[in-house]
Design a protein around this nucleic acid. Sequence first.
RNA 1: GCGGAUGUGGCGGAAUUGGCAGACGCGCUGGCUUCAGGUGCCAGUGGGGGUUAACCCCGUGGAGGUUCGAAUCCUCUCAUCCGCACCA
Length: 844
Amino acid sequence: MDEPKGIYNFNVIEKKWQGVWESEKTFAAGSSDDSRPKYYILDMFPYPSGAGLHVGHPEGYTASDILSRYKRMKGFNVLHPIGWDAFGLPAEQYAVQTGTHPAQTTQKNIDNMRRQIKSLGFSYDWDRQVDTTDPNYVKWTQWIFLKFYNSYFDEAAQKAKPIEELPIPEGLSEVEKTEYIDNHRLAYEHEAPVNWCPELGTVLANEEVVGGVSERGGHPVVRRPMRQWMLRITKYCERLLAGLDGLDWSSSIKKLQHDWIGKSIGAEVDFQIDGFDDKIRVFTTRPDTLFGATYMVLAPEHPLVEKITTDDNKAAVDAYVEAASKKSDLDRTDLAKGKSGQFTGTCAVNPVNGDKIPIWISDYVLISYGTGAIMAVPAHDERDYEFATTFNLPIIEVVKPDEPVEGCFSGNGTAVNSGQFDGLRTPEFKEKIADWLSEKGLGEKAVNFKLRDWLFSRQRYWGEPFPIIHAEDGRRIALTEDDLPLRLPEVEDYKPTGTGEPPLAKVTEWVNVTLPDGTRGKRETNTMPQWAGSCWYYLRYTDPTNNDKAFDPANEKYWLPVDVYIGGAEHAVLHLLYSRFWHKLLYDLGYVQAPEPFTKLINQGMILGEDNQKMSKSRGNVVNPDDVVHDFGADSLRLYEMFMGPLEASKPWNMSGVEGVYRFLGKVWRAVIDADTGAVVPAIQDAEPSEETLRLLHQTIKKVGGDVEGFAFNTAISQMMICINHIGKLKVRPRSVVEQFIQIVSPFAPHICEELWEKLGHTERLAYHPWPKFDPELVKEKEIELAVQVLGKIKDRIVVAADASEEAIKEAALASEKVQAAIEGKTIRKVIVIKSRLVNIVAN
RNA sequence: GCGGAUGUGGCGGAAUUGGCAGACGCGCUGGCUUCAGGUGCCAGUGGGGGUUAACCCCGUGGAGGUUCGAAUCCUCUCAUCCGCACCA
């Protein structure tokens, strides 16, 4: 049976307009000399997975698209790009299994996801796509790596500078000089115990290990020493911390980054080892508790352990060190309920009182934090307290709490048993003792951070190769810009070697090179982690096809910083911290002018399955956007994703809800188009709207505009629904009202609106039509209903003029019969009039 | 254990930030249109009581408090979710 001509046929309409936008390049961003103000709206680009899009992706993308379309209508030159974070483990794992080149898999997945994203009508500038695996992109990722490699951090200036400017101490030999320089590069090689995952055949960053197992796949992780590339992110701790202040990010995300960087202020103190020339330096945030230090603990990996251990204790200590080195992260965290340790047989001297205190080793002290050694104050530190009670070590109270406390007290109080410092409050004591220590040459104020240097290499094939050659004679040669990109070689198989050697090591014809001077060398066979490409993609979007530069400074200056960045909260720490770090390096070297890359950050919440559980294949509750588009259309999907609830909240999917917004679109359609003929309905006329209609329209313009700016899309849609419910009922629908209504719906449901706009006789695109203006006078209600309360309970409602005086309202309220009845026999104490809200009469 | 977020009808959620709780949508009930409806339209829909009318009482996880007035502020408490997890 033929469908009526004028039915809302979303399938046809959506394909039509997607085609028009594509061929007309409707959403190409203007150039950097555009006279309009710029606005850069960025989505976190997706990993092109084989599973394709799930309904979580379009949530953030729809929000950013609505904002982009709105801003264009508001007269902004909008940059709204998309791309592909295309390096990643799944494609490589698939390659290991099937032998398919990861590039092939990746390309296939990109094509599919691009099709899906295009079917949702997002207004991306498709000519600016970036693909992190594209050699033209990899080239510049490698180029930035070389910037790290060829820079050092000037502590005094607190910024990175080219390595050539590094002041080199006098009197160093050539070898020492090289070593000195290498020790200051922001990218450096480091032999260290790392998180080795045998299952994945690779090393993981600390952040990629969750609860002792790999974040991806949940495989066990063990500690193992290996040569790795590191980036000196710790040099930027202060600036990464300080930079957070000015950012318009949610306080919870800022706090997460703040805590991750983990700054603590305290002092470093030297303890003389009894019977040795060596000193043990400790870091403490509580130098005021020095008098209560009754023992010391070294990390098992501490370099002095072997030296100071007495013969009597050697066997036990060696065994403990051996056991600790084998412990996986899981063992060190989960099994850390009880404290273990070994006495070295040696004592140290407490510098403040000369007491001899035993030196122990224990794995509750971490070699990677502070100095790898602590002074233990069991009276005022939970961990030390637990250790001391386990091993029967003395506990001396040196801080008197204001209120008596059971067991260990770690708060502020008054100093006791602390010699000349007795009676001081904790904060003053901290100040005084730090000065005292530095006067005596025993220590100094110090700051420590939790953040560690970034483990930047992976033993994988599918990543950016490092542009580094290790020469036979031990020199390390960095490629020059002209040598880039260094491409990945073709390989026979993608299996990890199992030894920790990356797959690239097997490709001898690629690995072995002859240098211009005739010496032979080997290429670096590690590759970069997936984060590398995503650290700077927002910069490449400003100049995506530039072959001479990563991006033109003029473009960066115009577009950066990103005005709004939308994405999932799962990247709260890693991606956002790493990006900020890279950005700051480029800032220091003069390549970018904005100190921070992302001004405003919005984190969309998770979309759960209909069963209120996280969507997953195994639960069978995954909703595929393709199906929703097929059944209800892209406009309905977009609208529903936004109508579900606040953008930042997680909320469950509900297919009936999609039908609800679909019905709304049907109403919009039928308000304009005759379902039988497909013509504009005769009710639409060039007529003056009634006062009521005009008021509702202007209220809607105001509400929707304000809500879009405030990312409250759900309430914007609800206002549109109220508005169309009214318009649909009108016998005569003034053309101007209908047209303005369509304009404000268009960022949300662009296909249907473009179609209706055209049907109404317009030939230009709605996409750049100016956003309608509201008149504040027209928004105001003429008459308003007020609740009248007596003692807070509603007794009646009165209608008054919107501009009625307080006196008049009071009079009207008291005139109500119901109010009179309620206050009969009582004395009116007070009448509270809240204009345009209510009246409360206090009487008793 | 520490930190953060959230808690409102049968469901998703509103509430101008201290001022009429439940907007809007889903679902449900009844009616109209229709040969028919997974269509459209109209009406109703927090709970309890009530001569099913007027009206009354209760109600925003729980218990207190501040206030003329609290979903909103304060104290305590419970539940769920998410981070971090020996960082000296």
